[in-house]
Amino acid sequence: SGEEFIAMYTYESSEQGDLTFQQGDVILVTKKDGDWWTGTVGDKAGVFPSNYVRLKD
């Protein structure tokens, strides 16, 4: 389980282990570690910068 966040911006990365997503995607955040959080979008999982998302209303 985790908290749902909304992507405010598209995040694209070629780094292994990074979670890429489109603006407006719902991200289920499973771990918060400083500026880099872990989460899932659909069947993808990985880390992403926390300043790209906001808490879902």
Results as ranks from 00 to 15, higher is better:
Val53Arg: 01
Gly24Val: 00
Pro49Asp: 01
Gly39Gln: 00
Met8Arg: 12
Asp18Phe: 13
Val47Ile: 12
Gly42Val: 03
Phe21Asn: 02
Trp37Cys: 07
Glu15Ile: 10
Phe5Val: 06
Ser50Arg: 15
Ala7Pro: 00
Ala7Ile: 02
Thr38Pro: 03
Gln22Cys: 11
Ile6Thr: 13
Gln16Thr: 13
Pro49Met: 01
Gly42Trp: 02
Leu55Arg: 13
Ser13Arg: 05
Tyr11Met: 09
Phe48Leu: 03
Leu19Phe: 06
Glu4Lys: 05
Ser50Met: 09
Leu28Gln: 13
Gly2Leu: 06
Thr20Met: 08
Asp18Pro: 02
Phe5Thr: 04
Val26Thr: 15
Ala45Asn: 15
Glu15Asp: 12
Lys44Val: 06
Asp18Asn: 10
Ile6Lys: 05
Asp33Val: 13
Leu55Gln: 14
Trp37Ile: 01
Leu19Gly: 01
Asp25Ala: 07
Gly39Asp: 01
Trp37Pro: 03
Glu4Tyr: 08
Asp18Thr: 12
Thr38Val: 10
Phe5Asn: 04
Asn51Glu: 10
Trp36Asn: 08
Gly2Lys: 15
Ser13Asn: 01
Lys44Leu: 06
Thr20Val: 09
Tyr11His: 11
Gly42Glu: 08
Glu15Gly: 10
Glu3Tyr: 06
Thr20Lys: 11
Leu55Cys: 03
Gly2Arg: 07
Lys32Arg: 07
Asp43Cys: 10
Ala7Trp: 00
Ser14Cys: 12
Asp43Tyr: 06
Glu4Ser: 08
Thr20Ala: 13
Gly2Ile: 08
Thr10Met: 07
Gly17Cys: 12
Glu15His: 12
Tyr11Thr: 03
Leu28Met: 11
Lys31Gly: 12
Asp57Thr: 15
Asp35Cys: 06
Lys56Glu: 07
Val53Lys: 00
Lys31Ala: 12
Asp35Gln: 05
Ala45Glu: 14
Trp36Ala: 10
Val41Phe: 14
Gly17Ala: 09
Lys56His: 08
Lys56Asp: 10
Glu15Phe: 11
Glu12Asn: 09
Gly34Glu: 04
Val29Thr: 03
Ile27His: 03
Glu15Trp: 08
Trp36Gln: 13
Ile27Val: 13
Tyr11Lys: 03
Tyr11Asn: 03
Ser13Cys: 04
Val53Ser: 03
Met8Tyr: 02
Tyr11Cys: 06
Gln22Asn: 15
Val53Leu: 06
Gly17His: 11
Lys56Cys: 14
Phe21Ile: 05
Asp57Pro: 10
Thr30Ile: 09
Glu15Cys: 09
Asp18Gly: 14
Glu3Met: 10
Leu19Cys: 04
Ala45Gly: 10
Thr38His: 05
Glu15Lys: 15
Ala7Asn: 03
Lys44His: 05
Ala45Trp: 12
Gly34Asn: 12
Lys32Cys: 11
Gln23Pro: 07
Met8Pro: 05
Glu12His: 15
Ser14Glu: 12
Asp35Met: 10
Gln23Cys: 12
Val41Arg: 12
Thr30Met: 08
Thr30Asn: 12
Thr10His: 10
Pro49Gln: 05
Ser13Gln: 05
Thr40Glu: 15
Tyr11Ile: 01
Thr38Asp: 03
Thr10Ser: 09
Asp25Ile: 00
Ser14Arg: 13
Val53Glu: 03
Gly46Val: 01
Gln22Pro: 01
Ser1Met: 09
Gly2Tyr: 09
Lys44Thr: 03
Ile6Tyr: 06
Lys44Asp: 15
Val29Ser: 02
Val53Gly: 02
Tyr11Ala: 04
Tyr11Leu: 09
Glu12Gly: 08
Met8Glu: 13
Gly17Arg: 06
Glu15Leu: 11
Phe21Ala: 02
Asp57Gly: 14
Leu19Ala: 01
Asn51Tyr: 06
Thr20Glu: 12
Asn51Leu: 07
Met8Cys: 08
Phe48His: 02
Arg54Gly: 08
Leu28Asn: 10
Asp33Asn: 09
Asp25Gly: 00
Phe21His: 03
Trp36Met: 14
Gly39Ile: 00
Glu3Ile: 13
Ser50Gln: 10
Gly17Pro: 05
Tyr11Arg: 12
Asp57Ile: 06
Ser14Trp: 09
Leu28Ser: 13
Gln23Phe: 04
Lys56Gln: 09
Thr10Pro: 12
Glu15Met: 10
Thr40Leu: 07
Gly46Met: 00
Phe5Ser: 08
Thr30Leu: 07
Glu3Lys: 08
Asp18Ile: 12
Leu28Glu: 14
Ser13His: 02
Trp37Val: 03
Thr10Phe: 04
Phe5Cys: 07
Lys56Ile: 05
Thr38Phe: 13
Gln23Asn: 05
Ser14Lys: 12
Val26Tyr: 06
Lys32Ala: 02
Ala7Thr: 01
Lys31Trp: 03
Trp36Ser: 11
Thr20Leu: 05
Leu28Val: 13
Trp37Tyr: 12
Ser13Pro: 08
Val53Thr: 04
Glu12Asp: 11
Asp33His: 09
Phe21Arg: 02
Tyr11Gln: 04
Asp33Gly: 05
Asp57Arg: 04
Ile6Asp: 05
Glu3Asp: 05
Tyr52Trp: 02
Phe5Tyr: 15
Lys31Asp: 14
Trp36Pro: 03
Gly46Trp: 00
Tyr52Ala: 06
Pro49Gly: 01
Glu12Gln: 14
Ala7His: 01
Ser50Gly: 10
Ser14Thr: 12
Leu19Asp: 00
Ser14Gly: 12
Asp18Arg: 14
Met8Asn: 06
Val47Tyr: 05
Thr10Trp: 02
Leu55Pro: 15
Trp37Phe: 12
Ser50Lys: 06
Arg54Ser: 04
Gly24Glu: 04
Thr40Asp: 02
Val29Asp: 03
Ser50Glu: 01
Ile6Gly: 04
Ala45Pro: 01
Thr10Asn: 14
Phe21Cys: 02
Leu19His: 01
Glu3Ser: 08
Gly34Lys: 09
Pro49Asn: 06
Asp18Leu: 10
Asp33Ala: 11
Lys56Trp: 08
Asp33Gln: 09
Thr20Phe: 03
Arg54Glu: 14
Leu28Lys: 15
Phe5Leu: 04
Val47Phe: 05
Phe5Asp: 02
Val47Lys: 15
Val29Ala: 04
Phe21Gln: 03
Gly24Cys: 01
Ser1Tyr: 09
Asp18Lys: 14
Gly24Pro: 00
Thr40Ala: 14
Asp33Ser: 09
Gly34Asp: 06
Arg54Pro: 03
Asp33Thr: 11
Met8Val: 13
Thr20Trp: 06
Gly34Phe: 06
Met8Lys: 07
Ile27Phe: 00
Asp43Ile: 09
Asp33Pro: 02
Glu3Val: 11
Leu28Phe: 11
Trp36Gly: 01
Val53Trp: 01
Asp57Val: 03
Met8Phe: 02
Lys44Cys: 04
Thr30Cys: 07
Leu19Trp: 00
Thr10Ala: 06
Tyr11Gly: 03
Phe21Lys: 04
Thr20Tyr: 07
Tyr52Arg: 09
Ser1Phe: 13
Gly17Leu: 06
Leu55Ala: 13
Thr38Glu: 13
Leu55Ile: 10
Gln23Thr: 14
Trp37Gly: 00
Lys32Glu: 10
Asn51Asp: 09
Val47Leu: 13
Leu19Tyr: 00
Arg54Lys: 04
Ala7Phe: 00
Glu3Phe: 09
Thr20Asn: 14
Gln22Lys: 11
Ser13Ala: 11
Asp18Met: 14
Phe48Cys: 01
Thr40Pro: 02
Asp18Ala: 13
Phe21Val: 01
Phe48Gly: 01
Leu55His: 09
Glu4Met: 07
Arg54Phe: 01
Leu19Asn: 03
Gly42Ala: 07
Val26Met: 12
Ser13Gly: 13
Gly24Ala: 04
Lys32His: 14
Thr40Ser: 15
Lys44Gln: 15
Gln22Met: 12
Arg54Gln: 13
Lys32Trp: 03
Leu55Asp: 07
Leu28Trp: 14
Asp18Gln: 08
Phe48Lys: 03
Asp25Leu: 00
Thr38Arg: 11
Val29Leu: 00
Thr38Leu: 05
Lys56Phe: 09
Lys31Leu: 06
Leu19Ile: 08
Tyr11Glu: 04
